[in-house]
Design a binder for these strands. Structure first.
Lengths: 346, 346
DNA sequence: CTGAAAGCGCTAACAC
DNA sequence: GTGTTAGCGCTTTCAG
């Protein structure tokens, strides 16, 4: 690999000092037209690329934003990341992406790595911050890092850690979904998927119950079936549901994956979605409008979530004290997987 | 943000020189048990994190691998990236991820950015390297970068640029799909999706034709319909196909997205997949086994592709001359979207 | 086994 | 406008 040229080489060839070269590089101070031209020509000739590592060392900033998330393979996250990148690029930021697979050890590892690498800020998603009650040691570790590096939690929370957050209002989203079903005439509604120890599930289930009660409808515990977030989990949950004597006419799913799995199993049992059973998802992943039937779901506006997160992080990096919580309003997307009970509609 | 502690602080407190501190940090030279213990204690006490930026500057290596890809929102890439990360983590590497959206300008931009940031190596996917004939200037730019930074092309090629590549054998994969269809008894087979100016499409179409001819079957030009890689594109292609008087009994699709779109449109037209029309995809994205019907497809083994790419890049970074092309064998995954024509099977 | 000192490539006072 | 010089925080000879 050939040797890179430095400001010294440029300075020497242009017969000026490195300071002047640095000035034209950054426009940090006036330089005469002629010397500037000469220096620029030489830079161009050598295809000079200033060493960002050296620059970072002196400026004490790397222009890197660390992004910690559970699993880029889950289609929700690529969309968030896209938003992040789009917004971050505008301010010249660059990204260091890590998948934790929800493993707390990896989370800690990456957090430390990011400190070593001197990232300018961290966007943290998933894992411990989605827990209903996060181990105090893990919470403390996160808060500790947040004291030395601007950090924003995306769609998560850690009680009493005082962290800056941007998050979709999942309770509102769930309410939207339930009301939609009620509006179609459903009175017998279930809730599929999730895990009780995760706050995201807890929030959704709580909102589900509240909305049902507000509408004067009964909540049947047997129809609230947790068990995970994957499509396979959704299949199993629907299987369990269908083993009951008495069935609901509609279900809310914790996310689109489980919804897709649930629909599949329902179909295998000879049920027609939506006429025999309405299903609504959550997230609005890209494929939601391509499956059969097209999925009615709640959009978290993943891209917007990412963009907002970067904006908030930027405030923090700029030294401003951002508001503690920036909420994002979810939206109901009505497609084909929901209809009036008994198929009277659609 | 509080001030970070440096080797000097540690050295001072331990009453040794920074060199010694550095030695215990890296185990680069013997240090007496007692001073080592003392230093380690102090490091621990201050939660000392060596500054990776400074270290990179002296060592002339950052431990960062740049990953350039078209669109992380396309489910194929997250899986490749997962593989990359998994393999790279093992050697202590870290990742700088960029989405080009297939835009050559952005590709150039990121390539330059990566040079400035002094990444140790680059994994390049998509965009110009998938072109049937890449603009010489773009090809030259890539080759130029490859001369100063280890670079491997993943699933792409640039003629005569002499770049190191790792790639799925797409021709073999297509042959697998076509033979599967022929084996089921199909003789009237079409090919949907892709773009003629992209080499990946060209390779697949060519292999499709060859395999058909080898089996003594006719290739009908009207049944080869390009038009893109998205699910929407797949819908439109199937629409066009169904407008013909004479229909095939099966189609190969350029990827899973188009296959899913094609199936959807076929269903809307009252056709049953697979009994009226068999459909095979390509890539085996995660959702392929969750759609209805489950998709028969060709797996590129995306994760393995990523891992292999890192291994090859590592050889290059180690100064070794890796083999020019490391091929990956695709695998046929038979599921529900294919059956004998007329529905005799399945 | 340990210390002094010279970089790595760039920026930013501070002079002139 | 431009040059000199002292860092940024770490590694690495070279002595001892």
């Amino acid at each position: 690999m050939k040797q890179q040229v430095t400001v010294y080489d440029i300075a020497e060839e242009a017969q000026v000092s490195v300071a002047t070269v640095s000035r034209v590089l950054n426009g940090s101070a006036p330089v005469s037209r002629t010397t500037r031209a000469k220096i620029e020509a030489i830079m161009h000739k050598h295809q000079f690329q200033p060493n960002a590592v050296a620059r970072s060392l002196t400026k004490r900033e790397t222009g890197i934003i660390g992004v910690i998330l559970p699993d880029i393979t889950n289609p929700f996250f690529p969309e968030v990341f896209s938003g992040i990148e789009q917004e971050g690029l505008a301010s010249g930021h660059t990204f260091f992406l890590c998948n934790t697979l929800g493993d707390y050890g990896r989370e800690s590892h990456f957090l430390n790595l990011m400190r070593e690498k001197r990232v300018d800020g961290i966007l943290f998603m998933g894992g411990r911050v989605n827990l209903r009650s996060c181990d105090p040691a893990l919470a403390r570790e996160l808060a500790e890092h947040a004291r030395s590096i601007p950090l924003v939690l995306v769609n998560g929370d850690v009680k009493d850690a005082g962290l800056t957050r941007v998050a979709t209002d999942e309770a509102a989203g769930t309410t939207l979904a339930v009301r939609h079903l009620i509006g179609l005439g459903h009175t017998r509604i279930g809730f599929l998927g999730g895990a009780r120890h995760m706050s995201t599930t807890a929030v959704k289930v709580r909102s589900f119950r509240r909305t049902m009660k507000e509408a004067g409808l009964a909540v049947r515990d047997a129809w609230t079936i947790p068990g995970g977030f994957s499509a396979d989990a959704g299949r199993e949950q629907m299987n369990r549901l269908l083993s009951l004597r008495d069935l609901p006419t509609a279900v809310c799913c914790v996310n689109d994956f489980t919804a897709i799995g649930a629909i599949k199993t329902a179909a295998e049992h000879g049920l027609n979605v939506p006429s025999d059973m309405s299903v609504v998802g959550f997230d609005d992943i890209l494929l939601a409008r391509h499956v059969i039937p097209e999925l009615t779901t709640v959009s978290q506006q993943a891209g917007e979530l990412g963009r907002t997160a970067v904006r908030v992080l930027r405030e923090l990096m700029g030294g401003a004290a951002a508001r503690k919580l920036t909420p994002l309003e979810p939206r109901l997307i009505v497609r084909q997987s929901t209809a009036a009970p008994g198929g009277q509609g659609d």
